[in-house]
């Protein structure tokens, strides 16, 4: 198994395009996943009865093989980017929902009572007190979901999309390992960089967690 370096040199433009397309699919899915799971998590956090149902449902969705989800979406959205993004979004939900609910649970009751006593309305409490305090746990979920989505995009290669995953089917069909190795390495790098950026984002978004440590 040797890497054909000249193939890589000849295909840098393709590789850049595939990497960008890969990243776009994964990030869109995580953003959509957040958009869907935030309201659901608030409901699951407030209404105890729906909590088990929502978390259980997202767990069951997680057990369906990703390739099957993509294929079953074909009658709805066809061989398009939309199918890829919807499929990936479904997978991000299980992590995002669970972590957001746990994050909201972790907000001390006293803090919420204090907000109430100060006359803060429920929606405002949610947006300015609960969500910011839940942010570290939510961000942990976003990191896992992002890395998972980046790794899963390649499965969509079977429905003609899949970003860097196209290198896998290409290498398989031509019995040529170089594109496969390049695809695996680029996927890992992409996940690593995205994760590092999210850690930085969390650091910037939650300055109070640092101040506490310094004060202690």
């Amino acid at each position: 198994m040797s890497v054909d370096w000249s193939w890589i040199a000849d295909h840098t433009d393709d590789l850049t395009a595939l990497t960008l397309s890969h990243l776009q699919a994964a990030l869109t899915a995580v953003l959509l996943g957040l958009l869907v799971s935030l309201p659901l998590a608030v409901v699951a956090h407030r209404v105890r009865r729906l909590r088990g149902l929502l978390l259980g449902l997202s767990n069951v969705l997680f057990t369906i093989p990703s390739i099957a989800v993509f294929v079953l979406l074909l009658p709805v959205s066809g061989l398009t980017r939309t199918t890829t993004v919807i499929g990936l979004t479904i997978y991000t939900l299980v992590v995002l929902l669970r972590n957001t609910v746990e994050g909201l649970d972790s907000v001390p009751a006293k803090t919420k009572e204090a907000a109430k006593a100060m006359g803060t309305r429920p929606l405002r409490t949610l947006l300015t007190v609960e969500l910011p305090l839940a942010l570290p746990v939510i961000m942990a979920g976003v990191r896992i979901a992002t890395v998972m989505a980046i790794s899963l995009v390649s499965v969509a290669t079977y429905i003609g999309d899949g970003g860097l995953g196209q290198l896998f089917t290409d290498g398989f069909q031509r019995n040529f390992p170089t594109p496969v190795i390049v695809g695996v390495v680029l996927t890992l790098l992409l996940a690593l960089v995205a994760d590092a950026l999210l850690v930085t984002l969390q650091y910037v978004l939650t300055p109070w967690t640092r101040r506490q440590k310094q004060g202690a």
Partner: peptide, 8 residues
């Protein structure tokens, strides 16, 4: 988590 199973 980042390792793409299809590629592997």
């Amino acid at each position: 988590r980042a390792l793409p199973t299809v590629g592997l």
